[in-house]
Design a protein around this nucleic acid. Structure first.
Length: 568
DNA sequence: ATCGTAGGCGCC
DNA sequence: AAAGGGCGCCTACGAT
């Protein structure tokens, strides 16, 4: 059982790693283990020799691999593939195993909960990771039981069994080949996320302090000082009130009442509504300025810097398919850093960023997944909206709003009028959207082009309120309509990102940020043009791998910059 | 005290 | 031009 077998590139090799103990391996034909204090060094060595497809349970292994910088390209992350097949995202290894084996999920055993089956004197073999009821043993999931290489090997063989249970589920989808390829690309994207979580985004901390000072003022010396700064900020708004009165600006209801007393009757106090009032009343611009300053002070101020930036890197958690439709998500403000602050994202000395964003990605993805010949023709140029406008006989702006409205489910205004033209000229694409919307209204799950299940919230309005039920159905329709485009675009984007990751390795180029249609790659100055070319070239490769239609054209704007703020 | 929800706003 | 889809994170507030 302990040996060094020959690995082949086509093999699926499941692994279970325990630092200080070793690695357990499993293939269909055999399982084995190696006892070693530094299992990740061994994994690196094996991967260098012959890179098979490494198979693991979930993020915990990906994190070990990311931290040890093992350069793995091909992998299979069982939990990630599970989210692809079943939809949703809150999942654990125990749930994945239970789902794959059709076991009841309700009384899922927990750590520390000594049920009958966990009793030391039960008939269960404690050396087995599976309980008599078929569930995984919690202490095996937590890693607590993996104290020997023999146990690591049996754990690895279970991972492989899980993968083998997933594969026929992918086969059952409408396009099995694409589903399998999505499973592989999403697994690699999960590993990329583990790497970005570990690596972080390069930050110029001095510039960060300068910017925060500019937006939020000096750092408060004490809690009392903090209070004074807040009051001074509030005063800039309250000074415009007659009569003078205290208002809690952080309470939207109080702000609404305040505006009503000033003669502004509004359904809510959102910025775009306030902007519509014009600047007849100086209170309005003061309030809008207050909101911006308050936002940066609370969310991107000193507290944010202290908590998330260390050693020149902003670190937040990355998830590869956390969104409802399978988009990446990131915490610590990585996905919503205000544009005005992006100059603090700076490449290290001797490095640059290669920044690229996909142009008009969602309508191009719609063309691809629907196969609408007229819409595909519109993707051939740099600007997709021009030919659509010409065909509909409207301005480019109207055409753009109409297309976006069709994908988001807009129901009123200018876009609704142009929608008739879209339906007539692009019936295949519009039909696909409408089909998704109808499924959503009926509470039926929809699927992205790569096979991801997007679950509909099964909230059934039980109070018999017809209006609310109709509104909820309409909202599900908009959600589903958008999800098939957004989710398919997310799949394409991830293929692009992992292609850049893989091909950039030879140049030590590091993907440090993914933002739905935008990539930031940290690369050495002397490799800048080569990496830029690689990033642009990777679009063609990603399209070939992902795109359902070879004729759809995708393009990106690529630039070499020092600060994130420079481009666009 | 702790939790979930809502309004609001940053980004795509 | 209209105010539609997604996410994370802030504050306030009511329920537990």
């Amino acid at each position: 059982m302990s040996k060094k077998p020959e690995l082949a590139r086509g093999d699926n090799v499941a692994i279970a790693i325990q630092p200080g103990v070793g690695i357990g391996f499993a293939r269909d034909t055999d399982q084995w283990f190696v006892q070693t204090p530094d299992p990740l060094a061994l994994l690196t060595e094996l991967n260098d020799q012959t890179a098979p497809r490494w198979v693991w349970w979930d993020r915990s292994t990906a994190t070990q691999i990311a931290q040890a910088r093992v350069p793995i390209d091909r992998c299979w992350d069982v939990a990630t593939v599970h989210r692809l097949i079943f939809g949703g995202w809150k999942t654990s290894v125990g749930e994945v195993w239970a789902s794959l084996n059709g076991l009841p999920l309700d009384p899922l055993p927990r750590m520390g909960q000594l049920g009958l089956l966990d009793m030391p004197d039960d008939n269960g073999d404690r050396d087995s990771p599976i309980q008599p009821d078929g569930h995984l043993r919690p202490e095996w999931i937590s890693g607590g039981s993996q104290t020997s290489v023999e146990r690591l090997a049996s754990w690895a063989s279970l991972v492989l069994r899980a993968m083998r249970l997933q594969q026929p589920m992918l086969d059952a989808l409408p396009d099995p080949d694409r589903a399998h390829s999505t499973a592989r690309s999403e697994s690699a994207a999960e590993l990329l996320c583990a790497e970005m979580t570990t690596g972080g985004l390069p930050i110029d901390e001095e510039e960060a302090l300068r910017l925060i000072g500019e937006f939020a003022g000096p750092r408060a010396a004490s809690a009392l000082d903090e209070e004074r700064i807040r009051e001074e900020r509030d005063e800039e708004v309250l000074v415009h009130l007659t009569p003078r009165q205290p208002v809690n600006l952080r309470n939207p209801a109080e702000v609404k009442a305040m505006l009503r007393r000033q003669g502004h009757e509004l359904p809510d106090t959102r910025a775009w509504r306030l902007e519509q009032l014009g600047d007849t009343d100086p209170l309005i611009p003061a309030l809008l300025r207050w909101r911006k300053a308050e936002r940066i002070s609370t969310t991107y101020g000193y507290g944010w810097l202290d908590e998330h930036v260390r050693d020149g890197r902003l670190r937040g958690g990355w998830a590869s398919s956390d969104g409802a439709a399978g988009r990446m998500t990131a915490s610590a403000g990585l996905h919503n850093l205000p544009a005005a602050m992006r100059s603090l994202v700076k490449a290290e000395d001797g490095y640059v960023f290669v920044r690229a964003d996909l142009g008009q990605i969602e309508p191009r993805v719609l063309a691809s997944v629907s196969g609408d010949a007229a819409l595909i023709a519109a993707t051939l140029g740099d600007d997709l909206y021009e030919p659509i406008a010409a065909r509909l006989g409207v301005t480019r702006d109207i055409a753009k709003v109409a297309v976006l409205g069709a994908m988001y489910g807009a129901t009123t205004g200018e876009s609704a009028h142009a929608l008739a033209g879209l339906n007539k000229n692009y019936p295949v694409a519009m039909g696909l959207l409408e089909e998704a919307a109808e499924a959503g209204r009926k509470n039926q799950d929809v699927f992205t082009s790569g096979g991801r299940r997007v679950r509909m919230s099964s909230t059934t309005p039980g109070d018999g309120d017809l209006d609310r039920a109709v509104a909820a159905a309409a909202a599900r329709g908009r959600y589903a309509r958008n999800a098939i485009v957004q989710g398919s675009a997310a799949e394409f984007f991830k293929v692009w990102a992992i292609t850049v990751r893989r091909r950039g390795r030879a140049l030590a180029a590091e993907v440090v940020l993914c933002l739905h249609d935008e990539l930031l790659v940290h690369a050495r100055v002397e490799h800048a043009s080569e990496v830029a070319a690689l990033v642009a070239d990777a679009i063609g490769e990603a399209a070939h791998y992902w795109s359902p239609d070879p004729n759809v054209r995708f393009s990106a704007d690529v630039s070499v910059i020092k600060h994130w703020s420079e481009a666009k």
